[in-house]
Design a binder for these strands. Structure first.
Lengths: 199, 199
DNA sequence: CGCTAACTTGATTAAAATCAATGCAGGTGG
DNA sequence: CCACCTGCATTGATTTTAATCAAGTTAGCG
């Protein structure tokens, strides 16, 4: 594992800076160390869709490692962020030498894939209010009833496949029903998680 | 590679039979040899969502291999189908011995993940008519303008995150505009792919 | 040939997008 | 430190889109 640290190096990005963007060659794995990164695409008609949101420990760029290609999404730091970068050429030999690393990455892929398929299912079958409710409840930390949004509501809307207006209204409706309460822009108290999930 | 064949064995499923279902222990990789398999989930309110559709060469069950768990979806043969089955216990040693296999699987995962994220983006940002149009055009084989549906329209609706009624109507509208033509239940001639994709 | 599931068509309702305007907050530079 | 500016957020009115409900109709399979 020391060999990994040896071949990786740390890069820092200021808020708003991009790790990569479409058409950049994709040849490195990025592991977020500190800060947050949003991964998004533009659809043909110019709409932006948030695909993933990375916090410390999450990684991106892994597609690159197994089939040389170009990026088709943007990766943007949402605040000052530090990431570990490992290039494909440095990593491949390690994978061949230490199968355990491959297994680790496979497990992570497996998680991501499951996550992604779940997300598709949600967007395809649940109405906005339910998706939003689930998202909020998943944000809760053990023993707290305050959900802290990791991103702007605009991005949240994009992530959930809806619009900021609709998010605003749905949150309003939930608050009217006493299910949640706004603490601040990014903080929402969940008063009744069970009822929230039932719709 | 001979070792793989040695540890795998073939199982046959009749149309409608299940390879696995939720709560079954997930400990095998299934590679479709002949036939088709649909993978779907039930949402809380009993609605069914088609997650993937496998043809010859596709595989499922891989989640199982890296983190022991239970299935959370149904895998059902849509016609008489033959699959190769390899258990986790048989595969893991092979992975450790031959890193090339891991790399192969990683590459496949990578494809699937990309596919899945693209699917999420589509469902989240495009309206039904566009999703449907894209799906049809992707079905086209080189040099032909006939799209052959690999599944029922009911399943197609589920896959695209809509209802059979809406599929029916959208196809009707496309036909009225002269963009497509129904050949048979499962075959659709694409008269003007470009126009179709523009909406 | 008949049965069941898939498909289609129509009428209605519900959900959410869009358009439009304004309010608000956080960061910047004077 | 304050005022401004920009992008985010809210609110309302309207329109669009697709789901739902309700009957039929067709097609494939036993």
């Amino acid at each position: 594992m020391d060999e990994i640290s040896a071949t990786a190096h740390t890069r820092r990005f200021k808020k708003g800076e991009r790790l990569y963007q479409p058409l950049d060659e994709s040849d490195s794995l990025y592991i977020v160390h500190k800060g947050f990164v949003r991964i998004y695409r533009l659809t043909e008609n110019g709409k932006e869709q948030l695909v993933r949101f990375l916090g410390p420990g999450d990684f991106t760029g892994e597609m690159a490692l197994f089939r040389s290609s170009l990026h088709d999404s943007f990766a943007e730091a949402t605040r000052d962020t530090a990431v570990c970068v490992i290039t494909k050429d440095d990593l491949q030999p390690l994978l061949a030498t230490y199968p355990a690393i491959s297994l680790k990455i496979l497990a992570e892929f497996s998680n991501r894939l499951e996550q992604s398929e779940r997300q598709t299912t949600l967007v395809a079958t649940e109405k906005v209010e339910n998706r939003l409710a689930m998202f909020l409840v998943e944000l809760l930390e053990e023993g707290s009833n305050i959900a802290t949004l990791p991103m702007t509501k605009k991005d949240l809307a994009s992530f959930l496949g809806t619009t900021p207006e609709t998010i605003s209204r749905k949150l309003g409706a939930m608050e009217d029903r006493g299910l949640i309460r706004h603490i601040s822009n990014r903080e929402i108290a969940i008063m009744d998680a069970d009822e929230l999930l039932l719709g």
